[in-house]
């Protein structure tokens, strides 16, 4: 393989990020060395381990929250009351709903109902987008008031936690988008749905984190 091939391979892997999704497709590169069931349970186990790391990634933020909330109760009281509970609640509902749709999508692919899978993945991605738009309004409202990360520790935690969470929403959208594209290509069926299942697990985690962030930031002022 010469220089040209190398370059084209690198470019290809950048241009088609779907290639970057862990190799859990059956039409892999001929390096297949174990049976389907091992692959399925292995991928799920790996995903759960990855979720463990994600949880601990947020762990630092939760620990910082616990400490500074106890240290500066008034600051947290005021900060929390300044957040828009309605938008927060709407976003909670949206995320929980999108969790439902992903769960249905996983169920549907197991029954080979491809059309339902497509609808559910579409709804999930749209929900994620609405969530992002709401967050955009929330952020810009705060910026207009002159509130930024660093204004005080509460807002730092608010922006850091929701920001890192937002990043996960975007990653989740990208993952679901790739899966959806592959569904359209007919890559998945009731015999091959591992990718959708573990993509779904990731999306549920995004929901799980929000389930904690919402009351901690918006409600318990």
């Amino acid at each position: 393989m010469g220089f040209f091939d190398v370059t084209s391979k690198v470019l290809k892997s950048i241009a088609y990020p779907s290639e970057m999704v862990p190799s859990i497709d059956t039409e892999d590169d001929g390096h297949h060395h174990f049976d389907h069931e091992t692959e399925h349970s292995g991928a799920k186990l790996g995903m759960w381990l990855f979720l463990a790391t994600e949880l601990l990634l947020f762990g630092g933020l939760f620990a910082a929250y616990a400490i500074y909330r106890a240290k500066y109760p008034d600051m947290f009281q005021h900060g929390s009351q300044s957040l828009n509970v309605v938008l927060g609640t709407v976003n909670t509902v949206i995320l929980i709903f999108s969790s439902l749709t992903v769960a249905i999508a996983v169920k549907a692919i197991q029954e080979n109902r491809i059309k339902l899978v497509k609808i559910m993945l579409w709804i999930t991605i749209i929900c994620a987008a609405i969530f992002a738009v709401n967050k955009y309004f929330e952020y810009s409202y705060k910026f207009n008031l002159g509130i930024f990360p660093g204004t005080d520790i509460f807002y730092s935690i608010y922006f850091a936690a929701t920001g890192v969470h937002m990043l996960h929403v975007f990653i989740g959208m990208a993952v679901l988008g790739v899966l959806l594209r592959k569904v359209y290509k007919g890559k998945y069926s009731k015999d091959n749905y591992t990718a959708i299942e573990i993509g779904g697990l990731y999306w549920h985690l995004v929901d799980l984190i929000w389930i904690y962030l919402f009351p901690l930031l918006y409600l318990v002022g």
């Binding site: 949880l55 990360p149 890192v164």
Partner: peptide, 24 residues
């Protein structure tokens, strides 16, 4: 798997300290 994410968020927050002055 279990320890690295904590340093990940720590360094991310350190970057945030330098960018935004998070203050943690």
């Amino acid at each position: 798997v279990l320890a690295t994410p904590v340093v990940g968020i720590t360094l991310l927050l350190l970057i945030g300290e330098r960018f935004f002055g998070l203050g943690f």
